[in-house]
Write a protein that binds this DNA or RNA. Structure first.
Lengths: 116, 116
DNA sequence: TTTCCATGATACGGAGACGAAACAGTTAAC
DNA sequence: GTTAACTGTTTCGTCTCCGTATCATGGAAA
């Protein structure tokens, strides 16, 4: 069952959620960081720097820096792959799971108050 | 009639739309710029620098700079208010309308392909 | 008129992100 | 064992953005 959404509703939803995240002044991620975080938490592991860079169409340093920033916030964690020690496996954290979950709830809440 | 959306669908939708905008390499606005643009095109005019700054909870230079950037892209335009020449009235443009419209369609399209 | 207050724009220093290129570490090929 | 290829990271110069403070202009009040 697909989600039915009209253009005006979609735009309003984007505006409301954007407004909420800007004004909340809590953790504010850039658009790219948000997409990286969502990819890590929504798609099946394992996730690597190269894989994420390829999927998003950006360079590797972008991923490394985003992981540094989100690592400092305890939203993701990294460890070496024991099998192939060149690889870095990106792992989820408790705080990251909570953050993503709350973000999902925020969108759902905004969607619920949308006019017909 | 409110829009019904489940948390996992909402998160997937955000990821898909974010992915599309990152990879398109066309016009890429910051999160703040996007919210400003949507506010201009979704809420009834007139819009002023001060009003937008207050609504978003940011300082005035942020709005001025965003309007400069989006003005260079021909997404918005500005003119002095003839009544009170201190004010600047922010106006919509053809290109901006088209851009917002296409963005709305993108969200709707992503929503339509969402799994149950 | 002169003195305030309001508006939006600019100057400035600092912080952060970008891509290209060079880097250290690991594995594979020969 | 040496060379080559691949991983993620760092460096570099550049660019953009931020907030504070200041500026230039226009309106309102005395």
């Amino acid at each position: 069952m697909s989600v039915r959404l009209r253009p005006l509703q979609a735009l309003k939803l984007w505006q409301e959620v954007g407004l909420a995240t800007i004004r909340d002044h809590g953790v504010d991620l850039s658009a790219r960081q948000a997409v990286i975080l969502l990819t890590i938490y929504l798609e099946p592991p394992p996730h690597t720097v190269r894989g994420l860079a390829s999927k998003l169409g950006v360079t590797k340093p972008v991923i490394t820096r985003a992981l540094n920033a989100m690592g400092d916030l305890d939203l993701v964690s990294r460890r070496r792959d024991p099998q192939d020690r060149r690889n870095v496996i990106i792992q989820r954290t408790v705080r990251g799971s909570l953050f993503v979950e709350q973000f999902g709830d925020l969108i759902v809440e905004c969607a619920g108050t949308l006019p017909a």
